[in-house]
Structure formats: structure tokens, C-alpha cells
Design a protein around this nucleic acid. Structure first.
Lengths: 137, 137
DNA sequence: GTGCCTACTTACCAATGGATAGTAACTCTT
DNA sequence: AAGAGTTACTATCCATTGGTAAGTAGGCAC
């Protein structure tokens, strides 16, 4: 009991490091913006160059469920990346638009999207090579 | 039966669009690199400036489970973003290193990380404003 | 009234991801 | 020679997340 094993020491170090990381807001923010739906929503709004309605986003980002769309939009609104404007017209109308902060972020995410477009062929080739050598085992 | 309702037409449009999106490799790649653990692994390797071992990565990226670490490393290796080198020494030793393609990508992901570091205060303020106005309802 | 419109919310269920323990293969200690 | 320790994983279980489909509000057209 008095001696600490290597396993115990490792465990201890891990807990302390964990706590440090979890209290670091930068890492939390990085996690948030490294999200699949966040990239797609922000780049959709950047492409549009102006406000988009809920259903416009749902149509442009095919594959997103209404639940996920609402959830992600709310979290982006909370983070000040986009603004939500409700117009109480005949059927209610909701517009989403990037804030200056969101526009700033969209430049980076667009760069990532462009990277994907430019390097997709290299990645596909790498996958084929990897799969071919795995099957040869 | 002969008439198609608006709901049916919407459903149909959605399925067609879905199929289109799912067969678009660029979107698949964007999804892959918009992952939390991918960002952290690639930026860890970029920071190191050289190869890192499995356990080094596990320690630097505190909070990652061995399962997720292995899974993400394998998929990045398959995509040609990093290389995996096994040295069959006394205890086996595995080194991971960014390929030129991975180094290229790391520039973008580092830019995103820096953005998070520079704008975290604005985001925190936006959250406080949002939470304060929500509670006042 | 019945149905339709938008923008959601809710309920349910399958899949993803995290915590923890175990494995292989070999070496070093006792 | 038995047991502990090393690295780099697998395997298992379980909580959380995310997708699907259906329901809701509130007003207008038919």
C-alpha cells in the first residue's frame, strides 16, 4: 500500500492531465468547430453570402436531420457565430446569418473544404494502396 | 394514389439529393478531417515536428481512449495523411509521422486551432450574453 | 373543417465512443 | 524459473449521441 506502482503513477498523471485539459476552454472550442455539421452549416452560409432559412439549410446540407440541424444552429448562435432572426409572418420565418465572427471563421473552414477538394484524388489513391496491401496479407 | 402530395415530392427530392451527397467523395473527406480527434492528432504531430510514438500521442492528447486513438490513426494512415512504422525491438515500438500530404493539411488545422485560441474570449462573452437572456424568459 | 405551411420537438432505437481490462511477446528481476 | 514490467494494442461493456419518423403550433386556403 505504501509503495506506488508504475500503473498507479500513470493513472494519477492521467487524471491530473485530464482535469487540466477539460478546464481548457480553447480545447472545448476546438472540439466544437471541428464538427462535421458545423463545417457544413458555416460553409453553406458563407457560400450563400447572406441569410438562409432553416429549410434552405436543411435542403442544402442533405443528410442532416432536423434534430441535428436545430441543435447545431442553437450552439452556433450561443457561441456568437451566427444570428437567428424570427419573423412572425404568415407561416413563421426564421433566418440564420453569419456574424462577423462567423464570417471570420468561415474563411478557415472554406480553406479546409478547398483542401479536401484539391487533395481528394491523392487520398483515394492512398486508400487503394492501403486496401490492396491489407488484402495481400 | 395517382396524385403525389407535397410531402411525397419532398421525400423523393430528399432521397435523390441524399444519394448524390453520399456518393461525393469530397464530402466524405471533409467529414473525416472535421473530426475532433483528427485535429488533435495532426496538430500534435505537427507540433512535435517529427515522429511520435503511440503512447506519446496518448499522453499528449489526454482524454483519448486507446480504442479511439488506434481507430483514428488507422484511418489517417489509410488516407495517406500519416505513416506508421513498426520497429520490432525489445518491446515493440511504433512511430507515427505526418506524410507530406499530412504536413500540408496540418497548416490548415493549425490555423483553425490558432483561431480558437484568439477568439475564445469573444465566444465566452457571447455564451454569457445568450445564457443571461435565456434565463430571463 | 381538413389540409398545408414552416420550424421545430419528442420518442424511440441503432450506432458511436469512453472506461476498463485483457493480450502478445519478450526482458528483467528475484 | 515465476512474476512483474514494457509497448501497443484488442475486447468488452455501457452511457451518450445521432438518425428516423411522427407529432405540434398557429394561421391561412379551399
Amino acid at each position: 500500500m505504501a509503495t506506488t506502482t508504475a500503473a498507479q503513477r500513470r493513472q494519477q498523471a492521467r487524471i491530473e492531465y485530464d482535469a487540466f485539459i477539460k478546464s481548457c476552454p480553447t480545447n472545448q472550442l476546438l472540439d466544437r468547430i471541428s464538427d462535421k455539421w458545423v463545417s457544413l452549416i458555416v460553409s453553406a452560409l458563407a457560400d450563400a453570402g447572406g441569410p438562409m432559412r432553416y429549410s434552405d439549410l436543411g435542403r442544402k446540407i442533405a443528410g442532416v436531420s432536423p434534430k441535428m440541424l436545430t441543435q447545431t444552429l442553437r450552439s452556433l448562435e450561443r457561441d456568437g457565430i451566427l444570428s437567428r432572426t424570427v419573423t412572425p409572418s404568415v407561416p413563421v420565418r426564421v433566418d440564420y446569418e453569419l456574424t462577423p465572427l462567423g464570417t471570420n471563421l468561415s474563411c478557415l473552414l472554406t480553406a479546409v473544404k478547398d483542401w479536401a477538394e484539391h487533395h481528394i484524388e491523392e487520398v483515394v489513391e492512398a486508400r487503394e494502396r492501403y486496401d490492396a496491401s491489407s488484402e495481400a496479407s
